[in-house]
């Protein structure tokens, strides 16, 4: 039984390390911001989860540690898409144009910076309106 846990966690750590490196390499290699976002998602989801599961197997049944690791995993699951989305949304309303299609052509489709809707839709927009009214 101990051997099974040992080899299982060895496998989880190896696979997790592979995916963490993959995400970082994609962050370096991919051609523009919007594609790099996807690479960073690999590290945030599968890489982090596999390493955390490996740590859970190595926690020796100490259920306080297991609970903390599960809370970290749950928290990453909730926050990583929110921060990725807010960076992507900020870039989009900030007028950063994506490269699209097989030839990775520059497409001028992002909304213009001076459009009035851009600042309203940013995170914290409600607070800003409140500040304006006060």
């Amino acid at each position: 039984m101990d051997n099974v846990i040992h080899y299982a966690s060895l496998f989880l750590f190896a696979a997790g390390s592979f995916f963490v490196i993959t995400g970082a390499l994609g962050l370096l290699r991919f051609p523009d911001f919007y594609t790099r976002m996807h690479a960073s998602g690999v590290t945030d989801t599968l890489g982090a989860d596999l390493i955390l599961w490996g740590m859970i197997l190595q926690a020796d049944g100490d259920w306080l540690l297991i609970a903390k690791l599960l809370i970290i995993m749950l928290f990453l699951m909730f926050t990583s898409p929110v921060s990725t989305h807010s960076i992507a949304h900020a870039a989009w309303v900030g007028g950063l144009n994506p490269l699209l299609g097989k030839e990775l052509k520059h497409h001028d489709i992002a909304p213009d910076r001076d459009e009035t809707k851009a600042p309203v839709e940013m995170p914290g927009g409600e607070e800003q309106n409140k500040g304006g009214a006060a």
């Binding site: 790099r36 976002m37 990583s80 990725t84 960076i87």
Partner: peptide, 18 residues
């Protein structure tokens, strides 16, 4: 761009947790 830097900072933060 600025957003690449913020994205990289966020990725470094995730890896720091690990």
């Amino acid at each position: 761009s600025l957003y690449d830097r913020v994205l990289a900072g966020n990725a470094v933060g995730t890896k720091t947790i690990l």
